[in-house]
Design a binder for these strands. Structure first.
Length: 156
DNA sequence: ACCAACCCATCCT
DNA sequence: AGGATGGGTTGGT
């Protein structure tokens, strides 16, 4: 089982926070058999604090140093994702046009986003329907995507 | 290093 | 329903 810098309770369930001394590297959605784990070092405290701010106020803008590990293509896509503000949505197909690739390839890159919520892949929707989230196309995780969107004011 | 086959959070006809 | 799509992974040589 993976070890986390912190495991925090949130309105969408337990979140596992992964980071180095000064860079955020990942966020996982955890099942209930994980125990909450309070942050120890200062940087982890800051990450948890900003997450709590966001859940209290959907317009809160994250300001955290982030380390994304991925292929050059994935980095380009993730960079685009971070430009989408809270309350705004994008489409796989539209993003694909913008960077001259296919909608499917965009979906592939989103699927591998290691830092959901903060790198806001939940703001990318399919032409018709929600699209997927955290690797799933149906089920509990998709409910989280929907929760995040309505939290940000999106009306389906 | 290359290549074939397969997998996908899509989209069009 | 079927096919085009393009990035990634895997497993072979």
């Amino acid at each position: 089982m993976e070890t986390y810098a912190a495991v925090v309770k949130s309105p969408v369930g337990l979140l596992g926070v992964k980071n180095t001394e000064d860079k955020l590297t990942g966020i996982d959605f955890l099942s209930v058999n994980h125990k909450p784990l309070p942050p120890k070092v200062a940087f982890t405290k800051e990450v948890v604090s900003q997450l709590e701010h966001y859940f209290a106020d959907p317009t809160f803008r994250f300001n955290l140093p982030i380390m994304l590990q991925g292929t050059p293509f994935q980095r380009v896509v993730w960079k685009q994702l971070r430009k989408i503000p809270s309350g705004v949505t994008a489409e796989y197909g539209k993003l694909a046009e913008k960077i001259k690739t296919s909608a499917r390839a965009i979906g592939n890159a989103c699927r591998r986003n290691p830092i959901p919520i903060i790198v806001p892949c939940h703001r990318v929707l399919a032409r018709v329907g929600l699209g997927g989230f955290a690797g799933e196309t149906e089920g509990e995780l998709l409910a989280i995507k929907h929760w995040l969107l309505t939290h940000e004011g999106y009306d389906s």
